[in-house]
Nucleic acid binder design. Structure first.
Lengths: 184, 184
DNA sequence: GTCTATACAAGGATAGAC
DNA sequence: GTCTATCCTTGTATAGAC
């Protein structure tokens, strides 16, 4: 039920999805939904928690805490991509929030904290020379996130591009850019 | 009036923005708005046209049509960033569409055509060796767009980062990645 | 051109039968 | 657990005075 609801939210936008069409897609009635959840916002809360729990768990793993800054950054970027793909609909919903309600604002706040931890890693990697210093650190972080977050807008889990391959590609482009990589 | 309306749409989302709050932010009443425009969707149409006209104009310029594929790609990316910043609120609105109505779907179709022209440029640049061939061409294009489009989510026109500097940064990161650029 | 008042539909949510 | 019927609010839009 949560899955179908979130799919509907992502198709039409949370606000534009009425309990009526939700009931329709669930093959039931509005009232039946209210037996299971307190209301529309309850469904949103469940979905956002899944997304945020997944993302935050990446930062808890040993690979995110030990090693060189560049390696930690690579680990976290890979982890973020994998979670994003694994929890695709939930993260999609999270990334499209506008902060209209208290619930939405607190979810955005949690997301900001996650972003901030990665920004810190970028700074560390700059300090030890593994990330370029000719461009402002926040600009780098934001463009990096833009690239990764955009995945929810086009990645199809049933296509031929596997999550691992996608993560490899993201890291290769993030660190090396569009140019042909040097032989080694 | 269009500016204020679009700002409201971007703050709260188009669907979540009622004519009531719109009137409030305009310092007038709902009825007064209807004197000037046919309805809420009319405001959306005006805004989307501005965004799409701006983006499409980039492809018409001589720099987008002449020169090496890599130079054309650089020109178009720079142009897209500059339009995106110049028409920031309008492009923001465009990039957040879900395609709920016929109007939204036709705008998305115009946007897809724009994206497709740039994808073609990436392919040309790959063919002549200026873009890496170890990663799928569509993946590259999508990550590239993700990075650029994300700008609407964080760029503040009144900050210290100028549009030209931003465009330089985007192109530097897009082609060279996070690594420190080689001396030259 | 802008206001007040209001029509009319749609949306979220509940009551109560089954 | 799910249905029908219904309440109340909000939303888009219009009528008509000023």
């Amino acid at each position: 039920m949560l899955d179908i609801s979130v799919a509907a939210f992502n198709d039409r936008g949370y606000d534009a999805t009425s309990m009526g069409v939700l009931a329709e897609r669930l093959g039931t009635t509005k009232s039946a939904i209210y037996y299971h959840v307190a209301g529309k916002e309850d469904l949103l809360r469940l979905a956002l928690d899944k997304a945020l729990d997944g993302l935050e768990s990446v930062l808890e793993e040993p690979g995110a805490r030990n090693g060189s800054p560049a390696d930690r950054l690579r680990f976290v970027l890979r982890g973020a991509v994998l979670v994003l793909v694994r929890e695709l609909p939930y993260v999609t919903l999270l990334l499209r929030l506008r902060g209209n309600t208290e619930l939405e604002r607190s979810a955005l706040e949690r997301r900001r904290r996650f972003d901030h931890e990665i920004a810190t890693l970028v700074d560390l990697a700059r300090a030890d020379g593994s990330v370029r210093t000719d461009i402002d650190s926040r600009t780098i972080t934001r463009l990096l996130f833009g690239m990764i977050n955009s995945i929810v807008e086009w990645y199809k889990p049933d296509g031929s591009l596997t999550p691992d391959q996608l993560a490899d590609d993201v890291i290769a482009i993030a660190f090396g850019g569009l140019q042909q990589p040097a032989e080694r």
